[in-house]
């Protein structure tokens, strides 16, 4: 049996101390929706769990002039149902609505999901496409990590063991921007067979000024489709270009065959989804 001690810090400073004291042996637990299965399968065998769920100061959604900030204890459910997110960041609300089941969304946190860095996590590609950052802190102070630099490899992140992620920051998007995310999955709320997020900004003549495209579930960590983005740059999008963009996106995917499908099928799904989300993002930008 796995034996561990659960520690309940009463404030952040307390939590920092615990993590420093048990460096290398302690894991943070927030909603437990990512960690519990990992413990069950003995992929990790921590000696201490630092339960941060009581640090309710970290439960917030703020949409300010610089952009959106979501606290570490904000649950998937809160993001999914937030009126402000539905209105200003619909891509996030839509992504959350198809993440796991209601129980998982009630317990699990968005930040916990990002820290878990599962290769099938839904939030990561969306947040990456939107250019988000993660604010993290420890005894030694705070730092801001661009998600671009956060996901290093299979379930490996730039987060240090003594650090706590405090909030996700999503920068305010330029005018005429749109973003879309789609996963293909067996059941409605299953983990993705493949998923793609795209964020685009158009100029006044509907030419693509900027685009960010990220894939999930087809690589050890979320991966960016730079070539595809380059193809879009400065262009007015048509069907032919969409095909090229889809092809280029799939070109950087490196899926494996597993219970979600063969690698070949996942590649095909990347193409289908890429077409869909890029055109959806463009439509949204045009309407913005």
């Amino acid at each position: 049996m796995l034996r561990f001690e659960v520690l309940h810090p009463h404030d952040l400073a307390d939590a920092f101390d615990m993590l420093t004291q048990h460096e290398g042996e302690a894991k943070i637990i927030a909603g437990g929706q990512g960690l519990m299965p990992v413990l069950k399968h003995r992929q990790l065998t921590p000696r201490q769990l630092v339960n941060i769920r009581n640090l309710s100061d970290l439960d917030y959604i703020v949409d300010g002039k610089d952009g959106l900030r979501i606290g570490a204890l904000t649950t998937h459910q809160a993001v999914e149902n937030s009126a402000i997110i539905k209105k200003r960041w619909p891509v996030l609300a839509e992504m959350e609505a198809r993440l796991g089941d209601i129980q998982t969304r009630n317990w699990g946190t968005l930040v916990g999901n990002v820290c878990q860095a599962s290769p099938t996590g839904d939030p990561a590609p969306v947040l990456l496409a939107l250019g988000a950052c993660l604010k993290v802190a420890s005894n030694r102070g705070e730092r801001l990590i661009a998600l671009d630099d956060f996901f290093l490899d299979y379930q490996k992140t730039a987060l240090k063991g003594v650090e706590i992620a405090l909030e996700i920051q999503v920068p305010k998007q330029p005018a005429r921007s749109g973003a879309a995310y789609h996963k293909e999955s067996y059941r409605w709320t299953d983990s993705p067979i493949a998923s793609v997020a795209a964020a685009v900004t158009l100029d006044e003549r509907d030419r693509v000024k900027g685009a960010r495209i990220f894939m999930q579930a087809v690589c050890p960590a979320p991966i960016r489709a730079r070539q595809a983005e380059d193809l879009l740059a400065g262009q007015q999008v048509n069907n032919g270009l969409l095909d090229q963009v889809a092809q280029a996106t799939a070109g950087v995917a490196c899926p494996i065959s597993d219970v979600y499908g063969t690698a070949e099928y996942k590649m095909e799904m990347v193409k289908v989804i890429t077409r869909q989300v890029v055109s959806q993002a463009i439509k949204q930008a045009q309407a913005a």
């Binding site: 067996y186 059941r187 409605w188 709320t189 299953d190 983990s191 219970v259």
Partner: peptide, 16 residues
């Protein structure tokens, strides 16, 4: 067994 769990032995939900 590769999928001896209800995560990947996929039974339909109300959505399916």
């Amino acid at each position: 067994h590769v999928n001896a769990n209800f995560g990947t032995y996929r039974m339909p939900t109300v959505m399916e």
